[in-house]
Amino acid sequence: MKPSTNRMLTRIKAVYMFIKENGTVTTQELVDEFGITPRTIQRDLNVLAYNNLVKSPSRGKWTTTNRKVKMSS
C-alpha cells in the first residue's frame, strides 16, 4: 500500500474514532481537531458515510451509525 493511502486510512480511522468518542460533532470541530482543510475532512466523511459508518442528522453535523465495526491497528 502506498504511504499516502496508509496516511489517509489512518486519518479516516482517527476521524471515525473522534466522532464515536464525542457523539455529534461539527465539520468545523473536525477541521480544528485534525488541522486539515474542510475539503479533506469532507472527503473523509464521504468515505465513512459511503460505508454507512457516519451520518449527518443535520447540515454540518456528524454522528456514527449503529453499524458494528471491527478495528485493526
Rank of each mutant, 00 (worst) to 15 (best):
residue 46 N to S: 13
residue 16 Y to E: 07
residue 32 D to C: 00
residue 8 M to C: 00
residue 17 M to I: 15
residue 40 T to K: 01
residue 46 N to R: 13
residue 1 M to V: 11
residue 45 L to Q: 05
residue 6 N to H: 06
residue 33 E to N: 07
residue 25 V to A: 05
residue 24 T to S: 12
residue 17 M to T: 14
residue 29 E to A: 09
residue 38 P to W: 02
residue 39 R to S: 01
residue 9 L to F: 12
residue 37 T to I: 00
residue 55 K to W: 09
residue 49 A to Q: 13
residue 44 D to I: 01
residue 54 V to N: 02
residue 34 F to D: 02
residue 28 Q to D: 13
residue 48 L to N: 09
residue 16 Y to Q: 06
residue 55 K to Y: 14
residue 37 T to R: 03
residue 37 T to L: 01
residue 11 R to W: 05
residue 68 K to M: 08
residue 55 K to G: 03
residue 66 N to G: 15
residue 61 K to F: 13
residue 71 M to L: 15
residue 49 A to W: 02
residue 12 I to A: 08
residue 6 N to L: 12
residue 59 R to A: 11
residue 72 S to C: 03
residue 21 E to L: 10
residue 60 G to E: 03
residue 67 R to F: 05
residue 12 I to T: 14
residue 7 R to F: 05
residue 18 F to P: 00
residue 44 D to K: 03
residue 68 K to D: 11
residue 36 I to A: 02
residue 19 I to C: 08
residue 7 R to G: 00
residue 3 P to D: 10
residue 49 A to Y: 04
residue 59 R to G: 06
residue 6 N to G: 00
residue 28 Q to F: 06
residue 54 V to Y: 02
residue 28 Q to K: 14
residue 18 F to C: 11
residue 27 T to F: 00
residue 20 K to W: 05
residue 67 R to N: 15
residue 56 S to G: 06
residue 23 G to E: 07
residue 57 P to V: 03
residue 22 N to F: 05
residue 48 L to S: 09
residue 56 S to M: 06
residue 30 L to V: 08
residue 59 R to F: 10
residue 11 R to N: 11
residue 31 V to L: 07
residue 56 S to P: 02
residue 68 K to I: 11
residue 61 K to Y: 14
residue 53 L to A: 08
residue 63 T to L: 02
residue 28 Q to T: 13
residue 52 N to L: 09
residue 15 V to A: 08
residue 51 N to E: 14
residue 47 V to A: 06
residue 7 R to S: 10
residue 33 E to P: 00
residue 36 I to H: 06
residue 27 T to D: 12
residue 73 S to Q: 13
residue 2 K to V: 01
residue 10 T to W: 03
residue 52 N to A: 10
residue 24 T to H: 00
residue 28 Q to V: 10
residue 72 S to T: 13
residue 3 P to S: 08
residue 33 E to K: 15
residue 43 R to E: 07
residue 40 T to Y: 02
residue 52 N to E: 15
residue 28 Q to R: 14
residue 8 M to D: 05
